[in-house]
Computed example of a mutant assay.
Amino acid sequence: MDKRQARPRHYLMCEPTFFEVSYSINPWMNPSCPTSTERGLAQWMTLHDLLVGLEHAVELIEPVAGLPDMVYSANGATVVDGRALVARFRHEERVKESPAYLDWFRARGWEARQAESINEGEGDFLCTGDVVLAGTGFRSEPKAHDEAAEYFGKPVLGLTLIDDRYYHLDTALAVLDDNEIMYHPEAFSPESRMLLEERFPDAILADAHDAAVFGLNAVSDGLHVILAQQAERLPCQLRERGFEPIGVDMTELLKGGGGAKCCTMELREGD
């Protein structure tokens, strides 16, 4: 096996200045369970500094008061070849995030528009080397897949999620390199599981424990894989494939239903 190489990435993050769990729109959110904005900020800062230390470019979008989930910046848009398709959120609590992301992109000269269908950004749209993997079942609509395919000019492979703990695709599947992924089979419908098995026969499969600690909500640069430090088997599985896993503690932000990947939107400029 050739030695893997890290490739410089460009990310957008949002500081969790206003992070709290004051409502519930996924099974991880329990408003009666205390949250610490200070602890969430410290965990987020560790992730931010790690990405910078790995020599990736990290930009910031200004957090907006009253939008505690804005820290999960991956949900704000999908960016491919310099074009941003900004999210149209399913839940009212997150709807006002979209204008903030649209303004951010346009102010910096990106080609950007808001999706017409319910589309929750990189939460449900993950780019591999030659296809966009797109989730549905709980958030993004199936017709959002067609819209993304037309906008980006790339084939989109639709996948159906069936376990509401894994309400976004990026909670059940991670892209490791061009055509390499890891995923939790039980999160997907039988038809989608078959599609994944056919297209990615050598994928890393995560067990129930590692999926439940959000081990698949991971960020990879082709060499380093940043994932929940609570994952037990995935780090060994990754090392066997030549990756370098790096554990981070995101347990406070997991109270809102997000981990390392949820907090990082990749900005793909294209050629």
Rank of each mutant, 00 (worst) to 15 (best):
V219H: 08
S140I: 09
D207G: 15
K154D: 11
L50S: 06
Q114F: 05
A212G: 13
F125G: 02
G123C: 09
V156D: 03
D103T: 13
S98Y: 07
A42K: 13
F125C: 14
L67Q: 12
A187G: 09
Y167L: 07
A208E: 15
P68S: 03
R239D: 11
A203G: 03
D2P: 15
D49Y: 10
G40M: 12
M265K: 10
Y23C: 03
R113I: 12
A212P: 06
M194V: 00
A115C: 02
A87P: 05
P27R: 05
E59Q: 15
P63H: 02
S36P: 01
A115F: 00
V58C: 04
H184F: 15
R165I: 10
I118R: 05
M45P: 02
E20V: 06
R7P: 03
W28M: 13
E111A: 14
G53R: 12
P142F: 04
T46Y: 09
A42I: 03
P142M: 00
M45R: 14
H10I: 02
L102N: 10
C262K: 02
L60W: 02
D202C: 08
I61A: 13
E120L: 03
V95D: 09
A206N: 10
H184Y: 15
P8E: 04
L85S: 10
E191A: 15
F89K: 06
E55M: 03
C236K: 13
Q5A: 14
H145P: 00
L234P: 02
A84H: 01
S140R: 11
G109I: 06
L126F: 10
S36A: 03
P34S: 02
E92I: 06
F138G: 11
D49V: 04
G53S: 04
C263H: 04
R165P: 10
Y167E: 08
L50K: 12
S32E: 15
T264V: 14
E20H: 13
H56Q: 02
L195E: 10
